[in-house]
Design a protein around this nucleic acid. Sequence first.
DNA 1: TGTACATCAGTGAACGCGCGTTCACTGATGTAC
DNA 2: TGTACATCAGTGAACGCGCGTTCACTGATGTAC
Lengths: 246, 246
Amino acid sequence: MTLVRTARERARTDIVAAIKAEAARQLALVGASALSLRAVARELGLASSALYRYFPSRDALLTALIIDAFDAVGEAAEHADAEARAQGADAGRRWLAVCRAVRRWAGEHPHSYALVYGSPVPGYAAPPDTVAPAIRVSRVMAGILEAAAADGSLRVPERPLSRRLVTPEVVAVVEQPLPEQYPDALERSLTLLSGLFGAISYLLFGHLHRALEDEDAWFDFAVAVAAEGVGLVVPVASEPTDVSRS
Amino acid sequence: MTLVRTARERARTDIVAAIKAEAARQLALVGASALSLRAVARELGLASSALYRYFPSRDALLTALIIDAFDAVGEAAEHADAEARAQGADAGRRWLAVCRAVRRWAGEHPHSYALVYGSPVPGYAAPPDTVAPAIRVSRVMAGILEAAAADGSLRVPERPLSRRLVTPEVVAVVEQPLPEQYPDALERSLTLLSGLFGAISYLLFGHLHRALEDEDAWFDFAVAVAAEGVGLVVPVASEPTDVSRS
DNA sequence: TGTACATCAGTGAACGCGCGTTCACTGATGTAC
DNA sequence: TGTACATCAGTGAACGCGCGTTCACTGATGTAC
C-alpha cells in the first residue's frame, strides 16, 4: 500500500464518479423507480455486469445518489448562508436566502429533490449512512437560530409549549445552547423546516398549478409567514435583489 | 335503454369496483410505480386482457385511483369538519380536527397519500378530471376561514401583503367574499395548506424519524403554529379528547 | 312468447420488451521475490 | 531489473422473471321483430 495512488485506484474513483454522474442524469430523466443499471451501463459503453465491480446492487447505487443529493442541498444551503452572512444579513434575511437556495436547487434537480424529500422509493430502505448528509440543512437552520437568539432578534413565543417533544439527537444539532426564554425553539424549528419543504413540494409537485400569479413572491411570503411562527422576522417585500444568487 | 339497469350494467359497475379495490390494495403494498395490471387481474382470477374491457390503459386505472384518493381525503376532511361543527367547535378547533383527520387518513393509506401528495408518478400526467376532487380539502379550509372571518375570531394580519398573488380560480373557491381587513387571507391559506401537507409528509416520509418523542403532540403544535400565520387560533394543549374521531 | 341477430365479457396465446443478477472467462495491472 | 504469480476490470451469455398491450376467438346476454 503506497501513498501514491496506483493507476487502478485512480481509474476506479473516476469510473465510480462517471457511473454516479450518468445515474444522476438518468434519474433526472426518468425518476428513481425507473432508474436502471442496464441503461446506465449501456450509456457508458459498459457491459451491465461491469457495474457490479463498483456497486454491489441497484440499491447501493440509489443510496449513493441519495447521499449526493442530500450533500448537494446541504451545500447549497450552507453556501447561501455564508454569502448572506458575508453581506451582513440579519437572521431573517439569512433564512430567506437559504430557503431560496434550497428551492432553486430543487427546481433545478426535481428528481433528486423528489428522491430525498418526496415519497419514499418503494422497497428501498435508507441505510444509516444517509443520516449525516440529511441533517446539513437542519444544521444551517440551527446556526441561524443561534445567531438570532444571541443578538436578541428572536421573538419570545406568546404561548410556548410546556413539554419537550424533541429527542436528544435533535438537541445535539444545536451547538450553542439556546437561552431558556425559548423553551420550544427546536419544536418550532422543525415546524419551520417542514414548512419550507412543504412549500417547495407544493409548488414543485404541481399542487399550486394555476393557483398563483407569482410563484416566487408567494414562496417568499410563505417562508416569511412560517418564520414568524418561530419568532424570526423575514422581510416580505418581494425585493428583486436575490440574496441567494452566487 | 330502460330505466332499470340490466344484469350486464350491474355486473360492470361491480367489476369496476372490484378492480379498483384490488388495485388500491396492491397500491398499498407496492406503491404506484410498481402497480401492475397483470397482478391485479391475476388476483381477481381474470385474464390480464380482460381488464381492458374496463380500463383502456394502466394510466387510466391510476387516474381512477388518484380520483378515489382525493375523494377519500376530501371526505375525511369534510366529515371531520361537520362533526366538529356539530359539537360547537370554533374555527381553530375545526381546523385542528380537519388536520388530524387528514393525517389519520394519510397514516392509514400511506401509498394513496403518496400518490396524490408525494412526488409525481414519472411518465404520468394527471388529466383534468382530477382537479375537482383535489380541491375538496381546500374548500373545507375556505369554509373554516369564512366562519372565522364572519364571527370576528380571525386575527387581522400585522404585515399584510400589498399584492394579490392568487389567481381568480382560487378566489372562486371561497363562497362568501372575505372582508377587506383580510386582503391576503387566500395567500396565507395556501401557506396553511402547504404547511399541513408539509408536516404530514415530513412525519410520514420519515424525515423526523427518531427526532420526536411524541409525534402526535408535535403535529398538533405544528398545525397550531401554522394556523397562527393565517390569524387562526388553534389550541396547543395536547388534549386527549380527539375531536376527529368518528 | 319465440326466434335471429347484435353486442359485449372474458379467454389464452403471442409480441416485444426490459430488468437485476450470476458466472466462467480473458486480459491487463500490480506485487513480491 | 526481470520474472512468476495474484489481483482485479471488464466481457458476453445466460437465467428467470414480469410487464403492457393486441388480437382472433368463444359463449353468454340483450334487443328487435
